[in-house]
Design a protein around this nucleic acid. Structure first.
Lengths: 253, 253
DNA sequence: GCAAAAGTGTTCCTCATACACCCATGC
DNA sequence: GCATGGGTGTATGAGGAACACTTTTGC
């Protein structure tokens, strides 16, 4: 553990600066059953014992925030590598969000395809996917201020789809235009014209890359399979470039 | 000071969680002399003694982040109230950004009209405005990772102008369309057609409100004075609504 | 053949761009 | 008058919205 020298030399103040426990929380979003889902764990200890909460935990000394978020996600879901796009969402606190005292949390946003989580029972915490609307509209209450963090995360996800290629990170490695459209419809809660969406998605240079393969076995004409173009692939934890120019507009409610 | 109970009861871990000093930094941006300027202080103590740095300081127990940012801004510049729009930018660290140890900082972004800062000499720190390009393009080096934070803040400011009414917070209470346009030109580093900008700005409902008064004394025809419409006025610290729909597009470089 | 989904073409309309032109002041 | 900046009108073109139509599969 790194020893800080603040207790001896204080440049900004004459008193010793306060120290706070710092946690990272991860809002993992995916699209399943035509709806946005969020990964939640069941708390087994106080406070908020029995309540659902976002996965997360304390930052360790000598650790970066994004690293801590990836580590906590791995520990609580069993995934070995970050399965999608992980970025920082924002910080909350430290005042008044934990009954035990001042705790600062740095929330992160993970956009990923529907990945299987650790089976319940193999660990102290049950992790599972829940439809987002059950939390934000239904009466499902979360621990701490996690409902507010989730609401902010959902709003961020919605706006990200407009100007960044991140809609594709909800899909598998290879996907059809219809599957990609289903993601946008689920996240925005609207219907999009299949024909216009197809033209916009395939016509945006640097967004989709044709694999040459097609689907088979489904009803109707086979669909071409695409993957995210290399230029649009998000670097881990780093800012996403806006390749959708002009943006894919979200229709007004 | 609030006493945390983590040392006795540890729900997420068997060891005592690490505690970190947490600072808030403020990237105060304004437009002056047709360029974006940033408020910097001169460090009088180690580390980085003599270097320029963003204003900021330690979060106090029982304090919120946005409150701490406003307090530090007030302490280091002498302004009594927040002179513009203040929002959270993002968190950095805690690893490897302070030679003395792990310090987490939560950076904030202030967009404000050019306000006078505390005169040097009356306080331990000199605060003054510096052109942003002197830091990002010129060789002016900042303390800690403040150059990176400034770069992120500038990028955020640029994109904010596209879809939010925040360009107006760089202006005074009442301003002309030409003054507003000068803000956009300074932030984006481009020239905008005065006629088309005028139509777009005045034609966007819920953005500008005509005061009925006009300028006088300048060369040319008097210009109408506007203020930011109530619907577009940003709530302190809270998300800004996108009233510019479709957005004011930033022309390609 | 028929249903279903993929994909293309076409029309209409909004809006960004470019720029000609007029308006109201200082000098 | 003339220069200067404020503000309006208008033609052009790119692109979004809506939808008719063709293509290719499963049954």
């Amino acid at each position: 553990m790194t020893i800080n020298a603040y207790d001896e030399s204080m440049p900004e103040s004459r008193t010793v600066p306060a120290r706070f426990p710092v946690t990272v929380d991860v809002v993992a979003l995916t699209v399943a059953d035509d709806a946005m889902n969020v990964l939640l764990i069941t708390r087994l200890l106080e406070p908020f014992r029995g309540r659902l909460a976002l996965p997360g935990g304390f930052v360790l000394p000598g650790e970066d925030l994004i690293t801590a978020a990836a580590r906590e996600l791995a520990e609580e879901t069993g995934v070995e590598h970050v399965p999608g796009h992980l970025e920082q969402l924002g910080s909350y606190g430290p005042k008044g969000r934990d009954p035990r005292g001042d705790v600062l949390t740095v929330a992160h946003l993970l956009l990923a395809p529907n990945f299987p989580v650790l089976s319940a029972g193999s660990d102290a915490k049950h992790a599972a996917w829940y439809p987002v609307h059950q939390v934000l509209d239904g009466g499902l209450r979360l621990a701490f201020d996690h409902e507010r963090i989730l609401a902010d995360a959902v709003e961020r996800a919605k706006s990200k789809l407009e100007y960044s290629p991140l809609g594709a990170v909800f899909c598998d490695k290879e996907f059809t235009v219809a599957q990609l459209r289903a993601v946008y419809e689920a996240v925005w809660g609207t219907r999009l014209d299949p024909r216009n969406f197809h033209r916009k998605a395939t016509g945006t240079s640097g967004f989709l890359e044709d694999t040459g393969r097609v689907t088979t076995g489904d009803a109707g004409r086979p669909a071409a399979l695409f993957r995210l173009a290399p230029a649009a692939r998000p670097a881990p934890g780093q800012p996403t470039r806006a390749v959708l120019n002009p943006p894919l507009m979200r229709p007004p409610p």
